[in-house]
């Protein structure tokens, strides 16, 4: 048996997407208040869920390689373009804090009824079109400070993979403990009841005339 199968068929796409969407929704990531609660320290779900998922998949890939079921170079590893990736990360963090979603979670918000998620998707489409118009002048920046092809933390730090995974597990455990303490102090995390409650009429801006949904 050779893993991965490099199967880009429709059933695999639908199945993996379905599991992805189901897990994100179960985590509460259809709610922009729960998502942005990460950055007000009221809700550490984004950090906890992401870190856990990264570690589960990273350890899984490591074990598949250790068992000889997978070779080292067989999965796609993105290459670093330092400035473009850092700037893109900053823009996505900023847009997430203001708009309430990232690309994947906006689809989950939309699928669970959030009308604001549809507006966010329209904004993303506009953002990509703006990028395409500016691609010419941005080209140098886009390719600047390219790192080695598919460089991994093991290459960068010269440490064995098990040690990096162990360090990340410790960091995750610390983050879980600290996060739980911080979110409790702020009355979090957001529950399903809170984020699924009907929309409140806005008192300050004269929303009283509009019926709550």
């Amino acid at each position: 048996m050779t893993i991965p199968f490099y199967d880009y068929g429709i059933p695999g796409g639908l199945l993996t997407g379905l599991l992805f969407g189901f897990a994100l929704e179960a985590a509460g990531f259809g709610s922009p208040r729960k998502l942005t609660g990460q950055f007000t320290l009221k809700d550490f779900s984004v950090f906890k869920v992401m870190f856990t998922a990264v570690l589960v998949a990273a350890i899984g890939l490591y074990l598949l390689r250790l068992a000889g079921l997978m070779t080292a170079q067989s999965v796609f590893v993105p290459t670093l373009y330092f400035w473009a990736i850092l700037a893109g990360g900053l823009l996505i963090g900023a847009g997430f804090a203001v708009g309430g979603y990232c690309p994947g979670t906006s689809l989950v918000g939309l699928a669970s009824g959030r009308i604001d998620a549809l507006v966010f998707v329209a904004g993303m489409v506009a953002g990509v079109i703006v990028f395409a118009q500016l691609f010419g002048p941005l080209t140098d920046f886009y390719f600047a400070a390219q790192g080695p092809e598919g460089q991994r933390l093991t290459d960068l730090l010269g440490m064995p993979e098990w040690l990096i995974l162990a360090v990340l597990v410790v960091v995750a455990a610390g983050g879980f403990a600290l996060g739980s303490r911080l979110e409790k102090a702020r009355g979090g995390p957001f529950t399903a009841e809170e984020v699924c409650a009907p929309e409140e009429p806005d008192g300050r801006a004269g929303y009283a005339s509009q019926p709550a949904e």
């Binding site: 700037a87 893109g88 309430g100 906006s106 998707v121 506009a126 953002g127 941005l138």
Partner: peptide
């Protein structure tokens, strides 16, 4: 926010 995220994701 979507505009920033769309642009940032291409960068």
């Amino acid at each position: 926010g979507g505009l920033l995220v769309g642009f940032g994701s291409r960068l």
